[in-house]
Design a protein around this nucleic acid. Sequence first.
DNA 1: TATTGTTATACTCTATAACTATA
DNA 2: TATAGTTATAGAGTATAACAATA
Lengths: 145, 145
Amino acid sequence: MPDLSHGDDAAAVNSLRSAVMRLSRRLKHQRVDESLSPTEMSVLGTLARCGSATPGELARKEHVQPPSMTRIVALLESKGLVRLDPHPDDRRQKVVTQTERAEAMLEESRRKRNAWLAKLAEELSDEEWEKLRAAAPVLEKLAHT
Amino acid sequence: MPDLSHGDDAAAVNSLRSAVMRLSRRLKHQRVDESLSPTEMSVLGTLARCGSATPGELARKEHVQPPSMTRIVALLESKGLVRLDPHPDDRRQKVVTQTERAEAMLEESRRKRNAWLAKLAEELSDEEWEKLRAAAPVLEKLAHT
DNA sequence: TATTGTTATACTCTATAACTATA
DNA sequence: TATAGTTATAGAGTATAACAATA
């Protein structure tokens, strides 16, 4: 828990924000599959981690408005990466499930993605990399809080 | 330096990428000054950290194409946040310098921004926050490599 | 001839508002 | 009446291509 009256904490917050914004801009460019946007990738990742979900749940998890998720899911479906099934209990809702093709694509793209980040991280020391690894779960927590 | 043949490192890379993308999306919404885009904020931050720079240098540092930086600099100038001076040695180039108003705005907005992130981070333990603080400089390094 | 910056244009992603169907 | 999802539309941000001015 940060103490904002503490100058170092304020500086760390600033540094974090700036770095996250700039790094995200670079990551955008490193899409493994040119036809997949960062959010589309993120949705596939969420489905892989958390299993099937409704469009509404996905919108909340990705911090995107429902109409945006409608579009994203439609694009993913047109690419054969997700399947839409009717919801068992509620006929308003739908259930989005990733296909095997999506799983294969994620696996294949993970290699490329890692190669890119690895090249970037090559100049990091073991200590620096360890700090990133330790922080990753905390960033995840912030991202989905 | 990550070892990509190591499964945990690959997972960490994945986690990092996903978290950075999602957190950046949330940060976008938390702009302190509604009239300033994330990249505009980032440019001001860069100018504050590194001092005056040419539009080309700024484009490279922010990983944006030159025409985009032209637009961003023009917007910042119209808001009275930067000043454009002729380059001393090269009449093609310009020198972008932040104004006192920009400095004051950065200082004021830092408080608001910190309040938001603090609220988010309130649920973090001291250990978790410490991990973020330790990782911040490394993320910065990745972001501008 | 190469480089810096700009103009013109188009594209991608996301949001808001209004609508439909179901609970 | 409230909720899940969609359609229609608009806006923000960025990119590419073509151009101007200077090195």
